[in-house]
């Protein structure tokens, strides 16, 4: 017994070093568990407040860029409105007005809410974005986030009362279901941790023909994103050795370097769909 105490006293610093390293590795590995604990939320709230102070200053200097991107987003929306109106007269007459507009609005299960970006990173292999607005604004875990240009940004992983943390597409654990717009094949979009504007899409069969510039959109198979949001455009395709698949290189539609505004997407049917899935899984067991 005495020898054990002597040993601990003699190698105390080394043991402390090993202990602290193990604590760090535990934090890294059990990221999600840690953040669900109360401490993660407190830290998020504190750093969020400091970040917001800074962002208020920085925001002023980026007003011109922000304006430009909002004008572009508006332009896109106006164009969509025009498309609806350019129908020939006969069709307009044949339709009952109320059914055409009102029922569509009610049928849409997605709600978009604007939020300002308080802090943003692109330089590490695990990037997060912080939004100004948390559970008090109705944001919750699992909601999708898009940029003002309409490109996919990421998914909310954690919220406190006033802030929410978004796991950006530029995170090595990020997995998003994507679809080639032209041919309709679906695959998983991931990031390899190197360039902040290049993503990769896996799980596409060799027989599929892709060309440079083809759009990759969200598939709509998950409850997070509606179908048809632009993820990026095809840059090139490479065969994966010893398999029947190709790997598609994508340039992102969202410019991750200067995101100022973002929109969160709430799917009103999410809980219903997820409950149904859970129910089915329970039955199978």
């Amino acid at each position: 017994m005495r020898n054990i105490f002597l040993f601990i006293r003699r190698y105390f610093n080394f043991l402390l070093f090993i202990f602290l390293q193990m604590v760090c590795v535990y934090f890294i590995v059990s990221y999600s568990k840690f953040h669900e604990a109360a401490f993660g939320k407190t830290a998020n709230q504190i750093t969020g407040k400091i970040n917001k102070r800074y962002s208020n200053i920085q925001y002023y200097f980026n007003l011109r860029k922000t304006n430009d991107s909002l004008v572009k987003a508006n332009e896109r929306l106006y164009n969509q409105l025009r498309l609806d109106r350019q129908r020939s007269d006969s069709i307009q007459l044949a339709q009952i007005d109320s059914l055409f507009t009102d029922s569509l609005v009610q049928a849409s299960s997605f709600v978009f809410r604007g939020a300002r970006v308080v802090s943003n990173a692109v330089s590490t292999p695990n990037n997060f974005i912080v939004l100004d607005g948390g559970s008090a604004k109705g944001f919750h875990k699992g909601m999708g986030v898009i940029s003002a240009e309409g490109g996919v940004v990421g998914i909310i992983t954690e919220t406190s009362t006033d802030f929410s943390v978004v796991m950006s597409l530029l995170h090595k654990d990020s997995r998003i279901s994507g679809k080639i717009f032209k041919t309709g094949e679906t695959g998983t979009v991931t990031w390899d941790g190197e360039q902040p504007n290049v993503l990769y899409m896996n799980g596409i069969a060799k027989s599929v023909k892709v060309a440079k510039g083809d759009s990759i959109i969200t598939s709509g198979f998950s409850t997070t994103f509606p179908k048809g949001l632009l993820i990026g455009r095809v840059e090139g395709a490479y065969a994966v050795p010893n398999t029947n698949f190709i790997k598609i290189k994508i340039t992102t539609h969202t410019n991750f370097y200067n995101i100022q505004h973002a929109y969160t997407i709430e799917n009103k049917n999410a809980t219903a769909v997820n409950e149904l899935l859970k129910h089915v899984q329970k039955q199978l067991q």
Partner: peptide
């Protein structure tokens, strides 16, 4: 501040 504890601490 980086929202993923452990890396810099280690």
């Amino acid at each position: 501040f980086r929202h993923h504890p452990g890396f810099h601490a280690a």
